[in-house]
Nucleic acid binder design. Structure first.
Lengths: 162, 162
DNA sequence: TTTACTGCAAATATTTTGCAATATC
DNA sequence: GATATTGCAAAATATTTGCAGTAAA
């Protein structure tokens, strides 16, 4: 946990530097939101985040949450995760250990697997006029339970059309 | 172009088979929407698609467009592309040549680069209980124009704080 | 003191849903 | 003919915006 704390701490510093460099103000709300995101490994939606903050006794508005998340994304500390249900989620960009998302196109269930690839590996020829920072990889397919169901359905039809 | 036609044609067949297998009806609307997506290489939003269809003289509703797109995704013919602005886009899953998306975290501009990796390459150990079909890879970073602007800003601040 | 930022509420934008009419099987 | 699917409009969600008050610099 001490390593976690260290990571959060350096994220704080990075954010502070980012705000300074962009002549933006270091408001308490911004750092509270940063902390909240970095205190979890998972990806959270705006509404969840907002309600958590309220539950923790903070008095922030949704607008500020949206606002701050944009800044955190711009600062490269946080990443948007869009899983296809109409809701944007956010997760911290962990310095080292990344993960991919496996999404079932049938039931929408999301599974995460450890990533092994770096951006450089994915882009053999680094494109000119673009400096990559991080990535999100969504792999779509079918989870085993849906595949099973699918199989049964096909078989059922095959029998019927006999 | 004849190759394109052939691709669209086989997509039609695949979709027809999919509909049959799932006991769904082969309505004209469904095939018109399929054609519209396959007639373009780019990713289109629902609203754009809807308006194009109207402009072409078809009388379809937004609900049907959403509905059909879900089916096309389920059939594995079309892929959802979510770039972080709150709007889902769709593009055809081209059999062979894929592409990655480079997204500028500053200005949101999207560039596409040819993909070289297959799903298998990205997932060395195929996860049990999941059958991958296709993927979308979003690489975030900064485009050259934003990077330049950023550089100027930093320099400007450095001078000021002297 | 200046003005960027906040909370609040209203406005937009996007997607889903209910239902009667229609067209596929 | 039975019923899945459609168009339409209203509802549900998600996000953005305008504005007056507050607080960071």
């Amino acid at each position: 946990m001490s390593e976690e704390k260290a990571k959060e701490w350096s994220a704080r510093q990075k954010f502070a530097r980012f705000l300074e460099e962009h002549k933006k103000r270091k408001t308490p709300e911004r750092f509270v939101i940063l902390e909240k995101i970095f205190s979890s490994q998972a990806h959270v939606g705006v509404d969840t985040l907002y309600k958590q903050l309220l539950a923790d006794g903070y008095r922030v508005s949704r607008a500020t949450v949206y606002n701050t998340l944009d800044l955190l994304v711009e600062a490269g500390l946080v990443r948007r995760v869009t899983l296809g249900d109409g809701m944007t989620r956010y997760e911290r960009v962990s310095g080292s250990m990344n993960h991919h998302h496996l999404i079932c196109t049938r039931c929408g269930k999301v599974k995460e697997v450890k990533a092994v690839s770096t951006v450089a590996e994915l882009l053999p020829k680094k494109p000119r006029s673009f400096e990559p920072a991080y990535y999100t990889l969504y792999i779509y397919g079918m989870c085993s339970s849906c595949a099973r169901r699918e199989q049964m359905m096909r078989t059922g039809i095959a029998e019927k059309s006999k």
